[in-house]
Nucleic acid binder design. Structure first.
Lengths: 211, 211
DNA sequence: GTCTATATATGGATAGAC
DNA sequence: GTCTATCCATATATAGAC
């Protein structure tokens, strides 16, 4: 049974279209998505999509910006804070995995877009600029802890890449892991929940030097 | 400057098409790829693609099977062996990162395909069956080391997911990490080389209990 | 604003000459 | 085997009625 027109009855058609577009674009990608599919999902006709957004590209761009932008506040609230490194990592892991459990299609969507056209990905929203604003301070914190002897000598970039990898990849590899482990959707979701503690602990064991 | 017809002069047209198709499909995905693009890349016309492979779907299937199949021997040679757990992890990391440095488009391609249609992904080549053949033994090994007190109490699935994530995600996130860190392609490739030691060491610190 | 009907563009697939 | 020309299906986009 196909789900059609699942959006809130109260919303305006423009809103319905945006929600439908988000769902379809995230699931099927730009090329895989059809205007007709989005229209059906929103409970309107194709013509209306063009009325509001003029072209498929334009509609896609709106969703693209929204998804890109939506990731940043969480990053900023954790890394922009003046928490100690270990707290930051723990909070990031918890916060990010939670976000992705709620929006499991985001990783594949973003990974595709950033690979398709990195320039385009970074130009608007100054996403790179905003990230670069807190990374140096985080790197600095790492170096300080290393000097104090609380953190082993891992290169900060590797540490950052490791933490991101451990958080995000399980969502990209879900069908694979799930199949091999013979898990149901429910069970895999539970495993992802566990990872909030598991990943944090794993990373801490790998980098923390006990007093 | 676009690169057209870069393939070996000696190869047959069928071979040229296969190579071109691999390059384009891996880069642009099934929907993003155009028969015309592949033809140009191979230095022939579209008609010839249909002559040899009949349809786009069929051509894609050939590439798909090749890439899928190519990953398995490496997995099997490491995990099918009777090395101890820690060796297996170290060898896997080294072997897999090396493979991906040579073929950096594979992760994005496979992640897309497995997410698009998990059933289709696993049905042919019995890829799941072949993986499931050595996973239980590996899990068993982990449990044994844990009983012996050499390995901490991490759940084997988490450990496997962690290792895979640390190996693969840096290739998917390359444009992002590279941009944020302000690295050139050359520098990022070096960083990936470093990861062969780095990831192995990171994992060992996280799971190994010293005697 | 929203629809139906239609125009236009794209890209996969085939026919037929060489 | 390989090409050119063409067909046809699909999908985006627009026109015009309501």
């Amino acid at each position: 049974m196909e789900s059609v027109n699942e959006v809130q009855k109260g919303a305006s058609n423009e809103q319905k279209i945006l929600e439908a577009a988000k769902k379809v674009f995230l699931r099927d990608g730009l090329h895989g998505s059809r205007m007709e599919t989005i229209a059906k999902e929103a409970g309107v006709t194709k013509a209306l999509l063009h009325y509001y957004f003029r072209s498929k590209e334009k509609l896609f761009a709106v969703i693209f910006e929204e998804v890109k932008g939506g990731m940043l506040p969480r990053l900023e609230s954790v890394f922009g804070s003046d928490l100690p490194v270990f707290e930051k990592i723990e909070r990031f892991v918890e916060s990010y995995i939670d976000l992705l459990i709620e929006n499991p299609y985001i990783p594949l969507f973003l990974v595709n877009e950033v690979n398709k056209d990195p320039e385009k990905f970074f130009e608007t929203t100054q996403i790179a600029a905003r990230i670069q604003q807190f990374v140096p301070h985080f790197v600095q914190q790492i170096l300080e802890e290393q000097e104090k002897g609380n953190l082993n000598s891992i290169h900060p970039f590797h540490l950052i890449i490791n933490v991101m990898s451990l958080c995000i990849f399980p969502f990209l590899g879900k069908p694979m892991f799930q199949k091999v482990a013979g898990m149901t959707d429910e069970q895999y979701k539970l495993l992802l929940q566990e990872r909030k503690k598991e990943v944090a602990a794993f990373v801490m064991r790998a980098i923390k030097i006990p007093d």
